[in-house]
Design a protein around this nucleic acid. Sequence first.
DNA 1: TAGTGGTCTAGACCACCGT
DNA 2: CGGTGGTCTAGACCACTAA
Lengths: 238, 238
Amino acid sequence: MNKFNEIYLDIESAILNQQYQAGELLPSENELAKSYNVSRETIRKALVLLLENGYIQKKQGKGSIVLDVQRFNFPVSGLTSYQELKSSQHINSKTILVKNIRQTMPDAVTKQLQLPKDTAVHFVERLRQVNGESIILDKDYLLTSVIPDLPDKEAENSLFQYIEQTLGLSIGYAQKEFTVEPVTKEDKQLMSLHGDTHVVVVRSSVYLEDTTLFQYTESRHRLDKFKFVDFARRRSPM
Amino acid sequence: MNKFNEIYLDIESAILNQQYQAGELLPSENELAKSYNVSRETIRKALVLLLENGYIQKKQGKGSIVLDVQRFNFPVSGLTSYQELKSSQHINSKTILVKNIRQTMPDAVTKQLQLPKDTAVHFVERLRQVNGESIILDKDYLLTSVIPDLPDKEAENSLFQYIEQTLGLSIGYAQKEFTVEPVTKEDKQLMSLHGDTHVVVVRSSVYLEDTTLFQYTESRHRLDKFKFVDFARRRSPM
DNA sequence: TAGTGGTCTAGACCACCGT
DNA sequence: CGGTGGTCTAGACCACTAA
């Protein structure tokens, strides 16, 4: 593991354990460099990670102020799978595999993503249940050119885990789009909607590190169970 | 201006002008360092910015691949104001100032943000109209301890611009939370809802660079006009 | 003025990729 | 193997903050 990543994790846990309290200053970069026995630039790389993840705020001439992490309690922003979310939030939930079949990518999707027509995919449809209610409907399309086989028992668990750990592929980045749309017949059949007229729809295109598109996902959430939290830094608006 | 920022902007515009095409490799870090007459670490800082903004993907031993920026066409993620969004998207829209009064922060907000009860704020309520329809209702609470005066004519324009340019304050970061909630009476009165039962609610806490909280905003969007796009990189899920 | 973070350098070694 | 990006260093100078 990198030095700067180790240092990041070390300081992160110190903040979470409240060894550094909100509002306090971290030791200066020079002090940290001395105490970790690394150069200042290495410390600075660790601090960038803390900064990006909302743990600290830096001020020139002043120092690095520890932020109130309790207040930022749900760092979902970024690229996190349902499984990871579930384990980090200790949600009592269950996944039901509705479908896992091979077919071609829908035309609407191939057109938008500039893929060839009739691209072969695994189509995986899953329901996420919490306390017996079907809250989320996930529809995943995985390119068979990248993922040749997709056993049912993997589809019931985490696709990301299967892709990264079993297949040894590296996930790079994703683009997500959030909208609210009218419910479909399928939503009504599969989800516990209580007569809702709309669902939140999150459409994602997921790419490997080598920039290959390998997955397109449509995730449909019941309105009252949807929440997305984002931590954003101001970038000078030029 | 920084060197690495200049270089970032330079390469960014080269990508947008398609001088570097999607799928191509950028010149190597050593070549870029030579041609810009800077050290390699400085080039790398510029590339980090390109990476974070979804312009390139790096691969060890290979190079920096230019991504298809057209596909990522709506980089709203981050901290961008309505005015900036409007000008970047050339939306034909109008802002109506409904209220600009002094009052105390609602108790529900002070409790959640751990502020003192009866914190004095400017309460600004604004409607965003597109093509004559009221699409968004913004309710801003600005601490008078940070922003003593808030003229109506500034409230009609950009709050961020007033805060940054006129007052000379530096905005640091924000935490945003997205949910979908039932409409209120006020929503029905002020917005053009066509009988919708829900609105998207974006609640933001905005902080200065010195970590002072100075603004709390509730932004209520009509369902069919709401869209949020996020570019996310995979972080090793530990 | 002393200490802080912000930037930049020149060089080093490593891991990974392709030939 | 040579070239790529990934990491790390030791040192320098600057801009900002607080006393």
